[in-house]
Structure formats: structure tokens, C-alpha cells
Design a binder for these strands. Structure first.
Lengths: 109, 109
DNA sequence: ACTACATTTCTATATTTATGGAAATATAGA
DNA sequence: TCTATATTTCCATAAATATAGAAATGTAGT
């Protein structure tokens, strides 16, 4: 992931409505939710939701699949993964400090 | 860190100029740099830089300390830490998947 | 106090982004 | 085809954000 992609992904999550949408999809992962269900749960006009879903899709943070009249959205974890790696590397000095995974390997600095 | 703080921090980093500033400060951590040095390195007008530094300060991502006529800026890792924790918890389903052990550079799933 | 330099605030402007109603599009069933 | 429902696109408007020159402020040395 390069800087531009990171900025796009960050900008996507840096918006209350979109962060809510994304968190909801994380919670319901991997099944996902139809657009209408999201709109209902978050009490959001469909056009506004559609706008945000497009942004999230464009940033690669969510993926969609049509099923009949419904469009299901779900988290694309690979992008979130890449974003976390980018931040760890570029914004945490590569230090484990910023990434507390409670790992077993025992490497310490 | 609550949602509002997370959105503020994310919005701060979701801007090319600010991300550059922050990365530069991470690289020069923990010493930090004077505002003028940053402006020089990034070739940025001082007023523009000052605007962005204020944003970063307000988000708690950087801290400053005056020394004579210079104001030194440096990374506040505790906020970045909290942001990473927030993302891991809320946007990665609490899974380790999103928080790779940093040593596996080119690992692909 | 005066000068030099560092940084911030003021100000205006340009640009981007968010919102939501209305219309259009897509899908399925009778 | 007609109708009902799901989702998206179109559009206008409102709001937030970025940029940078000019002026103001702060700090130190003479």
C-alpha cells in the first residue's frame, strides 16, 4: 500500500457515518448486510448511504455482491490489513509499541 | 479512545501534507524538528505548515516544546498507540489478522 | 529600544466533501 | 407487462477544509 492508497483509506474511515457503517460490517462479518439493512440500522437516507458505500468500495474497504434485488456489503479485510501495516511501518517507527498483539515470539527492543 | 477522538485522529492523518509531516516526525523521533526545519524539508509555506501542525496538535498526534525562538515538534506516540488499538478492536474484529508481527515484510495471504 | 529571525494568526479564496429529495435503474414475482 | 421493492444516480445546496500572502506576535542578541 502506497501513501495515496493510505490517505484514501484513512479519509474513508475519518468520517463518522462511514466509520459506523464499517464497524457494523466488521461486526456482521463475514456475512455482511444488505444496503437496506444498513440504512435501517443506522437510520440513514438511502442516497446518503449509497454515497458512503461507494466511497468505502472505492477505497477497497468493503466489497459487494448482488443477490436478487439486494446488494450485500461486507468488509474487505485485506485492505484494512494493509492499512494497519502501513501505519505500523510509517507512523509507529516500525515499533511494536503501536501494535500490541501480545505475541509469543519474545522479540523485544 | 472514543469514536470522536478516533475520527479526529484519522482525519488528521488522512491528508497528504499532514501524513508527510507526521512521518517525518516519526523518523526523527524522539528528538523532533523545529517548525522551520519541517517547512524546509517539505518545501511548505510556514503558514500552511502552522495550520497543519495545529491540527496535529489538536488531535494529540504531536506535541511541541519551545526552545528559544524555535518550536520543536515531535510525535506523541501514546495517541497513535490508542488509535491503533481502536482500529484493531473496532475495525479488525479484534483479530490479529490486522496487526501483523511486522517482521514478515512481503507476506501475502 | 532596535534589529533579526521564528512562528503564528488573520484573511480571503479555492476546493473538496456531505446531505438528502427526486428521478432513474434494476430485479423479481404475478 | 404491470407492480412492488431495492439500490443507485442526479442535482442543488450546505458545510468543512486547504492554501498561502500579509500582518502580527514572540524571542534573543546588541
Amino acid at each position: 500500500m502506497d501513501t495515496k492508497q493510505a490517505v484514501t483509506a484513512l479519509a474513508c474511515l475519518a468520517q463518522e457515518a462511514r466509520l459506523e457503517i464499517f464497524r457494523l460490517l466488521v461486526q456482521t462479518s463475514p456475512a455482511g448486510l444488505a444496503a437496506g439493512e444498513i440504512a435501517l440500522k443506522l437510520n440513514m437516507p438511502s442516497s446518503t448511504l449509497s454515497f458512503h458505500l461507494k466511497e468505502l468500495s472505492h477505497a477497497g474497504l468493503v466489497k459487494s455482491s448482488q443477490s436478487g434485488r439486494f446488494v450485500y456489503y461486507s468488509t474487505d479485510f485485506s485492505t484494512m490489513n494493509a492499512l494497519m501495516a502501513f501505519l505500523t511501518e510509517n507512523c509507529c517507527g516500525g515499533k511494536q509499541d503501536c501494535c500490541p498483539p501480545a505475541e509469543a515470539a519474545g522479540e523485544e527492543k
